[in-house]
Nucleic acid binder design. Sequence first.
DNA 1: CTGAAAGCGCTTACAG
DNA 2: CTGAAAGCGCTTACAG
Lengths: 337, 337
Amino acid sequence: MKRISIKDIAREAGVVPSTVSAVLNGKSKQMRISDALSEKIRAIATRLGYQPNSTAVSLRTGKTNVIGLIVEDISNTFFATLAKFIQDEAYSMGYKVVFCSTENSDEKGIELIRMLLQSQVDGFLITPTNGMHAEVAKLQALKKPVVFMDRFIEELEKVPYAIVDNYNGVINGMDHLYEKGYNTIAFLSVELEQVQMKQREQAYFNSIAKNKKGPPLLFRIPYDLPTGESVQRIQDFLQANPGIDALFCATNYLGLKGLESIKSLGLSIPNDMAIVCFDDHDIFRLYDPGITSVQQPIESIATTATQLLLKMINKKELEPQEMINLKSASLIVRAST
Amino acid sequence: MKRISIKDIAREAGVVPSTVSAVLNGKSKQMRISDALSEKIRAIATRLGYQPNSTAVSLRTGKTNVIGLIVEDISNTFFATLAKFIQDEAYSMGYKVVFCSTENSDEKGIELIRMLLQSQVDGFLITPTNGMHAEVAKLQALKKPVVFMDRFIEELEKVPYAIVDNYNGVINGMDHLYEKGYNTIAFLSVELEQVQMKQREQAYFNSIAKNKKGPPLLFRIPYDLPTGESVQRIQDFLQANPGIDALFCATNYLGLKGLESIKSLGLSIPNDMAIVCFDDHDIFRLYDPGITSVQQPIESIATTATQLLLKMINKKELEPQEMINLKSASLIVRAST
DNA sequence: CTGAAAGCGCTTACAG
DNA sequence: CTGAAAGCGCTTACAG
């Protein structure tokens, strides 16, 4: 059972391969091939079960219809979900997706970019780390389309990205709390030099200032502390600032999922204290009935990024405002019961 | 910045392209090309930053070094973890992985197989559904290597698979409970016509018989019941059979994670009752200190399947016993506290 | 030791 | 309207 090629069809139809190619690519009109002949060729193709060999097509056209997806770790729910939506979008447009994980290693990221480049992917979807800077710059020099997701590299201004809107996400969350009547909102952050964290903290400060609720109560804990230690520090912080009636977590690295998980961590908070988590990595953490505002940024990040990339691949001009694409933040709000 | 080809190197080195090809493919010795010349060519290649065009290689050699991964849903933790291990194994052997999700739809599965076939993947890694039967048979006719994971299709005897060992997993779990002194073990199963469920139930019956502990206490609940309803039925069942001192769940579809989650479901069980879950889909559910036996079948399934597939792709003969590859089950045991 | 040629399966100008 | 030819970038017999 040998795979049949365009030649086989041509022989069967008594024409030359290029005619078959034209018909099968819907160029019968331009080539002024008669409808009768076109129909005959198509019939033969389906009868023989013709499947074009896409490596041949790729070699000839320079397009593989494959996009490369580089994430930190595909087994992580966030990236896996991202991958799912990307895949859906890509397949619906006739593209395949090859994925790989960097394991947060710059060298591995660079190696993977090279590898995907060599296999001629049409474009890249990347959750970048700063270490990828130079390699991505090379991709740009080669005019390979790249879109960042979830994060971006500040120096690479020409690379479009789809991320959650850190600044406005926090502003919205703060507004929500003020509306609910909370007045002394503390901001719990993590000692990380990430753009995201800076943006979120900045939004907190600005919100406090704008609403004249100062002074700000920012508390930072190291990223790599054991959970128990983190909980202890938060506890101490709350103790030292008894006026606090709401806690805004800049990230959900403690894995808060509602009252139950807060208790199981051993964190004791007043019954009427509100807790809000800025959580862009997990859309499934909906336990409490008090949640008021939830969006699904993963889906919009994935879909937006993929669409952007496919436009670039197909040489469509991007609208200027498409170059930087901010998406709303997801927000998990637990109102006091 | 144009990509440079083998021709460019040849021109630079003053030789013909085939010589370059031979050198770069490590065939200098066979082609009796002098070490000096080989070195010179290699130097030029690295200086110009040569990257072979893999679509050209694929067209010529008929190999793409890509394997197709078809799972039910890549965003599901089980499949995502599987994907991760597959990717690790594949990349270390120089293969890329393109993935897609069937969403449990037979039509989609068939379509995806066709699509991957057309893009010339070297082999398939599939978590199959029965509806894929015919399509996978076609792959076999085309001599395309296929390995099943997690599930298999009984009629397709020639397709190797890597799955958890349902039968022995349950036997081991039962033995464990008997050793711990439990005597009246109920088996909680789900109304599903899956091979896995049948195997697990069979193991339960056989274990009861072998250990002369009868009569068996099998309780089945419909798969699609709301959680609350399921819990109620289990509760009723336990009430009606007060002698039960251990509950063996054939699957963890209730998402049991230990005592806490059992309580939060509203399931009230005697303090000295043991609960065992046969859980092959989630290796992270390790809450209780009483867990005695945990393995990581996802990793072995992924690695075994990938290695098997790569052997087949590279035309290595499989040992007869490799054709069917059973892996031990993961087991989460909560002993009474 | 090295070079010239064919060919993988397609598409795309181009010539009639 | 249709066909002949070139070529995408490689590798692989084969000839010297």
